[in-house]
Simulated assay, not measured.
Amino acid sequence: MNVFNDPQSRRYARLTGAFYVTIAIAGGFSILWVPSQLQVAGDAAATFANILANRGLYAAGIGGEVVILVAEIMATAMLYFMFKPVNATLSFAAALARLSMVGVMAAMLFFHAAAYALADPGSTLASLSEAQRFDLAGLMLAVHDAGVWVWQIFFTIHLAILGQLVARSGRYPRLLGHAMTLGSVGYLLDTLSATVLTGSAALATITGVFLAIVTLAEVGFALWLLIRGPRPATPAPAFA
């Protein structure tokens, strides 16, 4: 437990980086790979046939999301204490925004569970026809996926603030911090393109550019934490 005693130490930073990497690996598995193996676009019957035939994989995907939530909670708390000396108020605001994101992600798991229960012939709604159950189960998955558009708003706020804390800390590369703040707009644009400004090819292109920037910045920051850790403190510009 001594590693948690000094938020400015290299060991503390490396552990924070380890949580970041855990989020990335578990997210790649649960959010990207598992759905690609089970979901069939536009075909609810095929999707839920895959889920019922691969119950272990579906459960593993949910388990991976739980791992993400645990790692997110730890990373959020550790980032708060790491950057509290830079600006306590903004560090707390960044933590609240990220925890709000975690709350939305946790709520999304209920819809995953509901979709599975509806698709299972032995569920409590077995009196419904198969088509009705699949329609309801498809709705649950759609609501689960819509949760992404909600948590991305909170994540935009978190990254915009965190990026400036990183840039002004004097202990991490300013370029990474500014890139995080700039690229954070990509998450907000992604939500807008999926909910309000649908079908805009130009917006999709711009969104992709910003998401590429923020992805590189986040990966770079995580690897910097994990491999190098904080530099000796140097004077940094204060917040106006």
Rank of each mutant, 00 (worst) to 15 (best):
A41V: 09
L109A: 07
F29I: 04
V67T: 15
F111N: 05
G122Q: 06
A204P: 10
A194N: 14
P173I: 02
A233L: 15
G122C: 00
E72P: 00
L225I: 05
G61C: 10
V209C: 13
D120A: 00
R11P: 01
R168H: 14
S200Q: 11
P232I: 11
T195Q: 14
R133P: 00
F83C: 09
A142T: 04
V219K: 11
W149F: 06
P230Y: 15
T215V: 11
V148L: 07
V185S: 14
A167N: 11
Q152M: 11
V34M: 08
G147N: 05
A119V: 01
W224T: 05
A117N: 06
L69G: 03
I62P: 07
L90P: 10
A238P: 15
T191L: 06
D6Q: 07
A222Q: 12
L182C: 12
V143D: 01
A137N: 03
G177E: 09
M105Y: 02
V70R: 04
R14H: 09
Y187F: 14
A49L: 03
A194S: 13
M82Y: 12
M82G: 09
A18T: 09
P235S: 03
R133I: 00
G103R: 04
F221D: 00
P230G: 14
A119N: 01
A179R: 02
I51G: 04
F221K: 04
A233C: 13
I157W: 09
T198N: 13
D135V: 00
P173S: 05
E65P: 00
A75G: 10
V66Y: 12
A117Q: 08
W224H: 12
P7G: 05
A236R: 08
A88V: 10
V40P: 07
A24F: 10
P232F: 14
V196M: 12
N5C: 00
A44D: 06
N5E: 10
A107K: 10
A137D: 02
P85V: 07
Y172N: 01
I157C: 02
W151S: 03
A236V: 07
A204H: 15
I206L: 13
V104D: 07
G61D: 08
V185T: 15
P121M: 04
Y20N: 05
G103K: 06
L57K: 11
L139E: 03
L226D: 10
A204L: 12
L15A: 04
A201G: 08
G220T: 10
P7Y: 09
L118Q: 01
F81R: 14
R174M: 14
V104P: 07
R14Y: 03
R11C: 02
S100F: 05
A95F: 14
L32W: 06
R98I: 01
T198L: 08
N50V: 04
A212L: 11
N50D: 03
I227M: 14
A238H: 15
L226F: 15
A94I: 11
G56M: 09
A18P: 07
H144W: 02
A238Q: 15
T205E: 15
A13P: 04
P232T: 12
V150M: 03
L159C: 09
G147E: 05
L175E: 13
M101S: 04
R133L: 00
D190R: 09
R14D: 01
